[in-house]
Every structure is written in structure tokens, then in C-alpha cells.
Nucleic acid binder design. Structure first.
Lengths: 231, 231
DNA sequence: TCCAGGCGCGAACACTGTTCGTAACACGAC
DNA sequence: GTCGTGTTACGAACAGTGTTCGCGCCTGGA
């Protein structure tokens, strides 16, 4: 019946005051979850996995985080905190919008699958996400758009960016079997070529929509939206 | 040790030759799954639930469907089969594109959450989905776009449509607690109003992005993209 | 010194997708 | 008509998942 010694904050002289295992906190949990996410994708971020990484059980997390959904929200907000919002400049607002959304995309691609969580939570909850939204709206207003048009445009632009990030993230991440999709691609191509006169455009477009053209396609999408915004 | 009687195709005289329970098939499984989806959303479509609806166990489904992912693909393709593709007319191709994508959106909204599966499967697999894509490409080509621009535009437009459908579907469906999001909304509003000078644009845009303006916002997004496509 | 309240966490519950092995069936060959 | 034989049906089980319960421990304040 040995009483367990306290493992943390022991004032042992020959040891730094730094505790061996930092105490649990929402922030630590979110950081750990993001570490897993970066390396292995969103589906690897389970409550058990995060807890295991912290040397404990899943129940311990629920004292700091309401549920998995809230953990996801916090992860997304923290990730987006790395994007630095620009100061609106009316003369180059278009370039600033493109830059801002490209940076957001890059962050989301670095955290494969994180974009999915933005659909589960309808309202932008965290301060970082709110700040990004405010900045985008400010840029659009600087471009001369009305309140309503700016709001609608910001909605459409972020929706497109998130959707693109989600798609590319799923594509790149090992979430789906690479051999399987190659087989599917070949089968689909054979199916199309069997009646090639029925699919004149699809056959030509197939090889344009690849991972290699992703950057180009995203820029294209932003360009047509921004151009369409101001005649 | 009573030997079980065969339940199907029993030639009992006092009963019609119609089998009481139709035999299992991929088509029947997909139809059943779609019935559940329409009523209760995508998350209610579990293998057990579909099997139960057919009066059997989950293992029975795997003889006709490779896995849940393939079932989702088949459901999506079947649902999109209800959208009638138009004959391209060069003089009103823009209106035709808007009509086509709006019809797709309506179908997806009628099947809450179905849009989510389009991200899990990178390649459009079913004949109906392929036909929709071919039609969209044909419309854009009729508008005078090059092969590459048409392909990129189709990619961006469908991505936007699917993202919008997904978002609206999650929003409308009972997937998330309505009371919870109202609370979140109020908290967020309070947070913003506490430092209202920091959030001039967000505070104004908040009430514009609602379920009521969904139709309007979708049309706005399509409009700016189509306008931006041709100067 | 005591004590209340938050925190840690093992165990369990109710789910999920999927596989295994066996039983029943339909159908063509002899 | 009888006998394989391959396909279909499906109960049971496995390995996961998110989440909750309940009981100890520790800590901060009185």
C-alpha cells in the first residue's frame, strides 16, 4: 500500500523547477491534437489518441474540453492564428485578398482535413477566425463594395477557400488508398473512351484537374470571383 | 431443432406469387439508404440501420456493396440522376449554367448531408455525375471558353455548389443542436459588441449571413463567378 | 488543520464499420 | 431426378469510436 508520490511540481533540488509532465489544460490538449493532425491527418485525432499522447486516458480530457467538436473548433482557430492579416490598402485590395486567402489555404493544407471541421460548426467561434473574417470584410469594403455585397462576397470566397482546402487535403493525405483511386481513374477513363463521342469535354478535362494544377486552379477561382465582383 | 422454413418465394396458394420481402440487391439497398437519408440525414444512414430497414443484419449488405463508402457514392450518383441536363444553347449559356447548378443544389438540399460524400471520393464515379459534369463543360464551351478555362471553371463552380449545399444541409438538418447555436450566436455577438470598434464590418455582416438569405447568396456567388469568367 | 471542490482517470456503455464461418438456396450437369 | 457448386444470407464477434459514471487524489483557501 505505497502511497503514490506526486509526480509534478516536486521541489527536488537537483532537478529544474520545470515539471516533468506539464499539467493538463485546454491549451496543451489543443497543441497536442494539432501535432497529431499535422503528421497523420484529422482522422488520427481521436480522444483516445490525444489522451495517450499525454500519458493519460480519454476521460481526462473532458474536464478541459466539452467534447470532440469543441476540440476541433479550438484546433481550427489556433491553426488560423498563424495567418497574419494585412492592413487594408485601397489601391491593392485585390492582391491583398488573394494573399490572405492563399495564406489561409496554405495553413489548412499543412493541417490535412482541418477544413472539414468548419462545416460542423456553423458559427465562427474563435477570436482568430473572427479576426480573419473582419480583415477580409475590411479589404472588400476598401474595394468599394457595399455592406451587403462585401458580406456575400466574403461568404462565397471563404466557402470556396475552405472547400478547396478540404478537397486538396483529402487528396494529399493518406486518407484514401492511392492504388484504389488509380484503379478507379483507369476504369472511369476506359468507360468514357468506350463511348468517346458522348464525352468530348470530360475526356479533355480529366488530366487538367490534378494535384499538379491545384495552385493554378485555386488562383483561377479567386481571380474570376474578384473580377466578377467589380464588373 | 426445428428446421427453419424458407421465408421467400414460398409457393403458398393463398398468397400472391409476389415475394413478401424482395430479394436484396445493390439497387434496393441504395434506394432504402436514400429513403433514410431524406428523412433523417446522412448520419442516420448506417449499415445497421439500412439492414434493419430491410429486415436483415448488416453483414448481408456486403454481398452487394463493397463498403459504406461505395454505398455513399452510389447514393450520390442516384440522387443526382434526378437533375435533367439541358441542351446547350450558346445564346443563353449563362442562364443554363445557373439553372443546372441551382437544380443540383436543390437536389442536394433535399438529401441533407449528401454533399459530404463528394469529398471522400475524389473521382466522379457514377454515370449521372459524369453526365452532369459533361453537360456543365459543354455549356462553358458553348460560352466560348477554352478547354483549360472551361475545365477550371467547371471545377470551381461545382466545388462552390457542393460546399454551399453541404453547409446549408448541415445548417438545416437537425445534425446540430439549434439551441446550442443560438447560445453560441448570442455569446459571439456579446463578445463582439464588448469591443465594437474592433469589429465594424463583422457586426454589420452577421445578420446578412442567415438561412433566409441562402438562395440570394448562392445566386450572388454564381453571378460573380460567371461574370468574372468573360471579363 | 481541515475541508470542499476541482481534477485525474479506470471502467463501462452504446454505438460504429467490417469480417468470419456457417447455413440455405438456386441452378446447371449428369 | 439427384447431385454438386458457387452465390447469397446473416448471426456472432472484433476492433474501434465518443462519452459518462463514480471514485479517489490533490490543492487552495479558511
Amino acid at each position: 500500500m505505497s502511497s503514490r508520490l506526486p509526480l509534478v511540481n516536486l521541489p527536488v533540488p537537483w532537478r529544474s523547477t520545470e515539471p516533468a509532465r506539464p499539467r493538463l489544460s485546454a491549451d496543451l490538449i489543443v497543441r497536442t491534437a494539432l501535432d497529431i493532425l499535422v503528421g497523420e491527418g484529422i482522422d488520427a485525432v481521436t480522444m483516445r489518441r490525444v489522451a495517450h499522447e499525454l500519458g493519460t486516458g480519454p476521460a481526462s480530457l473532458y474536464a478541459h474540453v466539452a467534447n470532440k467538436s469543441e476540440l476541433h473548433d479550438l484546433m481550427y482557430d489556433r491553426a488560423l492564428g498563424a495567418v497574419e492579416p494585412p492592413k487594408p490598402d485601397a489601391r491593392r485590395w485585390r492582391a491583398q485578398v488573394k494573399r490572405l486567402l492563399s495564406d489561409q489555404l496554405a495553413i489548412m493544407l499543412a493541417h490535412p482535413g482541418i477544413a472539414r471541421v468548419t462545416w460542423a460548426t456553423m458559427i465562427p467561434v474563435g477570436p482568430n477566425v473572427l479576426r480573419q473574417g473582419e480583415t477580409l470584410l475590411a479589404l472588400l469594403r476598401a474595394g468599394g463594395l457595399s455592406t451587403r455585397r462585401a458580406a456575400y462576397a466574403a461568404d462565397a470566397l471563404t466557402l470556396y477557400t475552405k472547400a478547396f482546402a478540404y478537397e486538396a487535403g483529402v487528396w494529399s493525405s493518406g486518407e484514401l488508398d492511392q492504388a484504389e483511386i488509380a484503379k478507379r481513374g483507369a476504369q472511369t477513363r476506359a468507360y468514357l473512351e468506350a463511348n468517346s463521342e458522348d464525352w468530348p469535354n470530360t475526356l479533355g478535362a480529366g488530366e487538367l484537374i490534378t494535384a499538379e494544377t491545384a495552385r493554378e486552379r485555386f488562383a483561377f477561382g479567386l481571380d474570376i470571383m474578384l473580377r466578377g465582383l467589380t464588373r
